[in-house]
Structure formats: structure tokens, C-alpha cells
Computed example of a mutant assay.
Amino acid sequence: MSETAASIASFWDAFAPSFDEEADHGLRDPGVKAAWAQRLRSWMPASPADVLDLGCGTGSLSLVLAEQGHRPVGVDLAPLMVEQARRKLTAAGFDAVMLVGDASNPPAEAGSSFDVILSRHLLWTLPDPEGALRRWIGLLRPGGRLVLVEGRWASAEPDEGQSYAVGSESMPWMGGVGAERLLAALRPLVESARVEPLPDPALWGRTVQDERYAVVAFA
């Protein structure tokens, strides 16, 4: 593991014990969970679909997918996050695979062919997000879809993120990525893509002023 990857894993491991306290992370509030369940249902094909949940964190979206009859596989760089995800899915009675690994280049044991690849607020953490997009699309079955829940919530100053990870100053989408920039990166790689704005406070447990959206792209 590179020094940058190790420092990213350490950063998120430090947040693992409290991560689910955020309404949109833990989905503990029934209204917030219902809002995400409705959105996921609208983005997914008919169940059961094989879904690769990249940057799965504590597994909250994977759990909703499993409850909807899909077959999620989760990948996250932070071991303590993955440990929580495994416990969460197991406690709910699901035998889902949750793996420690680099979400930008998923490990072989995750699989090599999926109906859907899902990520939420992951791209800003990656040193090479456009390279990751190319690799992800290569894992999709014909007609498969990429579902990216993203946003732009900070201005990326040259020295921003120094406390995040070694090498974070070179991460091109630090602070998030706007929908138009993400679409521009995706268009040469996919058959079609659409943007769905996500300003609904029910999704976040609070009112948001920054840009929140989903891109659904078809290979």
C-alpha cells in the first residue's frame, strides 16, 4: 500500500466509531433511510442485480440494496469501516461480501462483472478519479450502469486537504466535483449519462446549500 493510501485508510479508520452518527451515513433515521431506499430503487435494475459498492464505508447503502433483493459486494480502503459493514450486514441476516481494498482499482476477489457499480462521495478522495472511472466501467456487463452520488461542497485551494492525506494536494477533485465536470469525464466512456439533482433535505437529514447530485451512466 502506498503512503497516500495508508494515510487515507488511517484518516477514515479514525472516523469509523462515529461515522454512522451522521444522518446520511448511518441511515438510522427511518425517514432518511426511506429517502435513500426510494432513490436506490429508482437507480437500480430489477432485482437481483450484482452491485459493486465502492467506498462502501460502514455498509449502509449495501444493507439497503440487500434488503431490496440485490447482491452487493462492498470495497473500502479503511479496515475499521469494513469491519462495521460486515457486522451490519451480518446482523441483518445477509451474507454479503465486504472487502478491504482500493476502491479505485477493486481487488480481484470482489469480482470482475457487475450489473451496477455504485459509489457515494468517493471520487474526491482519489488521486486519479478519471482513471478510476475507466476501470469501473470495464467491470460493467453490457448494458450495465454506473451510479455516482457526488457533489461539490468546498473550493479546492492549493493547500486544501493537507490534513486529509499524504499527497492530497495533488488530488484533482478535492472538495468535490461539479456535475458538468463529471459528465465531461464520463461522456467519452459511456453510451449515455444523466444527472439527477439531490437537494432533498430528507436524504441528508438537514438542508444543504451546496451541489448534491447523482449521475446514472450506461455502458
Rank of each mutant, 00 (worst) to 15 (best):
P48M: 05
A184R: 15
V166M: 12
V64E: 04
D102N: 11
S62N: 05
T4Y: 04
E3N: 14
V100G: 09
G26R: 08
A6V: 07
R135I: 07
V190I: 06
V149E: 08
S42Q: 13
M171P: 10
G175T: 06
P45F: 00
L203S: 14
H121S: 12
L198S: 08
C56L: 03
A165Y: 00
F114Y: 07
A110G: 13
E3G: 11
G131M: 13
A217G: 07
V190F: 09
Q84T: 12
M98C: 05
V51N: 06
D159G: 03
A108W: 09
I137N: 04
P127Y: 04
E169I: 15
R134K: 15
G138I: 12
R194T: 12
L123E: 00
G93F: 01
Y164C: 06
A34F: 05
G69L: 00
L77F: 12
D115A: 10
A78I: 02
R152P: 06
A156E: 14
L148P: 03
A110Y: 11
V64A: 10
E67Q: 11
L54F: 01
S47H: 15
R134C: 14
D102T: 12
V97G: 02
S62A: 10
V73I: 05
L118R: 14
R187H: 14
S119K: 03
H25S: 11
E160V: 14
G175P: 07
I117H: 01
L65Q: 03
A9D: 04
P30W: 08
E157P: 11
D20R: 13
S47V: 15
V73P: 02
A46F: 09
D53F: 09
K33T: 12
G176R: 13
Q68M: 06
L126A: 06
L54S: 02
A34N: 04
S7K: 14
D29H: 08
L203N: 12
S155M: 11
W153H: 10
L140H: 06
R41Q: 10
H25I: 14
S18L: 15
H121C: 07
Q209E: 13
V32L: 04
S104A: 14
S113K: 09
E196H: 08
P172Q: 05
R39W: 13
T125I: 00
D210Y: 13
V166P: 06
F19R: 14
A23L: 09
G26A: 08
E109L: 06
R212G: 07
R120K: 15
A35E: 00
A154R: 10
S155C: 08
W124P: 09
